[in-house]
Amino acid sequence: MESIVYGIVTASIILLGSVGFSMTLNAENFINIAHGQMLLLCAYITLFLNAYMSIVPAAIIGILVTGVFGVLFYKVFYRPIKKRGAMVLLFTSVGLAYVINGVVGTIFGTTTFAYKIPNVKEIIPGMTPYQLLIIIAAICSTLFLHYFLTKTKIGKAIRAVSENSDLAKTRGIDTKRTSNYVWFIASSLAGLSGVFLGVIGSIHLEMGWNQILIILAATVLGGLGSIYGVMAASVVIGLSMELGVLMIPSYYRLAIAFAIIIIVLLIKPDGLQSLWNKSGKRVA
């Protein structure tokens, strides 16, 4: 039972991180390695604010600031070189990942931190209110994102741009505006994921790198760029990482995630989305 709870919590955190990653992958067509460091950035901003205020306002400010950082990074680093192709963008994001990681490390050092949060009792056997909160937040974010992408005008515009940005432009969609939304939402979701990681575990400099690997795993398993596929994949990976620990030593948690993607790639290179999307085309 405990493992299942842990699995769902892990899945929720992976989901929050990888949905944003998939959105940027769709919208800009490149693998944003720096996405993992957005988790780290938000976790540390929240840590800094947590010294002056309680965790909830600290996290909210941290997430909004991270969202703004995401938009800024896009405007300063990615948009000017967008025409140079996916390779240049990818390595710019690697550079940016090192910059974020390095700056945070220079300020905070290599110590492992934890948030100041009140101790709480289990409400349901095997589940703390924090875990419940994480699961609820993940579900709400998923529902919100679904509503946003399918019902609002700007959400539909984002999907149109992801599908075919030239066509979207000729139809009068302001692609700069949709990009700002994409990067804000993606980065703040990453930020939320980073704060949750800090709440259930600890905050350290490696968390961004560890998490981007799992996010990549979820993205491959879901099918590159498929947001709903990635949601399903996060659940599969989260659960199998935590349940796998029952059979395999716990230090192989990450290896389990990778074993899954390696197997999936060999059998079904288009990922989970190909199960319901027979045409093999990418979906939003």
């Binding site: 550079g95 090192y98 990681n101 390095g102 700056v103 490390g105 220079t106 050092g109 290599t110 400099l205």
Partner: peptide, 10 residues
């Protein structure tokens, strides 16, 4: 070490 990787990234 952190400052080093930040500069290399830049």
């Amino acid at each position: 070490a952190s400052m080093k990787i930040a500069i290399l990234g830049l």
